[in-house]
Amino acid sequence: MFFNSEHSIYASDGSSHEKDYNYQRTYPIQSELTYTLKANRIKQHANSLEDLITRSESAMTSVEILNLVAELQKYGITVVKPPKVKDTTRLHEKIKCDYDGDFNRVFDVGRFTILCDNKTKMQTAVEVMKKAEKFNLIVSEDKDFFEKQSKTHHRFHNIKLYVPKYDVYVEMQATLKSFTTLEGYTVIENPKLSHLYYELIRAWHPKDASEEEDLKQASDDTLTKINDVICEWIDMKDINKLSNRYKPHTEIGILKLPQLSKKTEEEINQNIALKIAQFVYTQLCTFVPEKEKGKAIYFILYEYYKKYVIGDKNPASCADFALLLQESRKQEIDEDITILQALETYIPLQANNYA
């Protein structure tokens, strides 16, 4: 059986099944024959990025895809088609950073997002897409990251459809409406935050400095924690605990990293660590969440800023600074009390010497 691949099978009697694009396929085997099997990870078949964009645009508006979309909509499922394919500059950057320059590894030139009210409707959506052959489409890859965590902990069911007419793959990504950060459809506050943060750290590969490597790892972990809240990989009880620790900028007064004040905008943009610090600082100063998830996300971001950007030993807010002063004053008082107690003991002893 073949899974999630482009595959061919050749028998010694000359028969063959060539270039099968189905995500899973079982072939009968005859004991008297020998077979040669070939399987490759699915890739686009374009001659250039421009060719890939053209094919994708044609496929996305094809009768085959539109009929599938109409079928999904019959079940009250929202299908969001991007108004246009991804920007060429953005695609070039992604191809360079994520795919070693190979444009044929890109499948989300134009991705359809399938938004469902609940798990039952999502299961229906997946079942409809898996019957894509009735629309002259082929399901070529089926990956469930709804029950199994993806690398970034986004929660979705991903299906790649092969459109034979244009020899191109189109990606369909299904999730719940309560988990999406797609503008115009999301219930998540500040929905761009996680994506913008991801874009900052995605292509960052620290070279030698161990401090930068630690910051990169902490940044990745923080993104995962944010997505755990958005997609409810942690339950609402734990999300509420995080949100209860939230305090707004207007109350605690976030402090700016001193290095940011000494750098120009151009210098900051050339240093990814400073760029991240600037981004997080701006978010903490401007994001004013009202809902539980938003407050939990803010607190996670603040903890990251406090521990990894500012540093544990330094105040990250005016409230932290006031607390440090209070602790310092208490320590001074404790020291004064110790001195007074010593003096109280010392003076009578001295008096006894003169008695």
Rank of each mutant, 00 (worst) to 15 (best):
E6W: 12
I9V: 14
S15P: 03
H17Q: 11
Y27D: 13
Y27H: 14
P28L: 14
S31Y: 11
L33R: 12
K38T: 15
N40W: 11
H45S: 15
A46T: 07
A46E: 02
D51S: 11
T54A: 14
V63Y: 03
I65P: 00
L68H: 03
E71F: 02
K74F: 05
K81F: 02
P82H: 08
T89I: 11
R90H: 06
H92V: 01
Y99R: 09
F107K: 10
D108L: 07
K119T: 03
M122S: 04
M129Q: 02
E133S: 15
E133H: 15
E133D: 15
N136P: 00
L137C: 05
D142I: 05
F145H: 07
Q149Y: 00
Q149M: 03
R155V: 05
H157S: 04
V170H: 07
T175A: 13
S178W: 00
T181F: 07
I188A: 02
P191G: 15
Y197W: 00
E199I: 15
L200D: 09
L200H: 15
L200W: 13
A209H: 09
S210M: 11
E213I: 11
K216Q: 15
A218G: 09
S219E: 03
D221H: 08
T222C: 11
C231M: 08
I234T: 13
M236S: 11
N244W: 06
R245W: 13
P248N: 01
K256H: 12
K256Y: 14
T264L: 10
A277Q: 09
Q278K: 10
Q283T: 08
L284W: 01
K291I: 05
G294S: 05
K295A: 06
I297F: 04
Y298R: 03
E303L: 10
K313V: 13
P315G: 01
S317C: 07
F321T: 07
Q326Y: 00
D334E: 12
I339H: 00
Y346L: 07
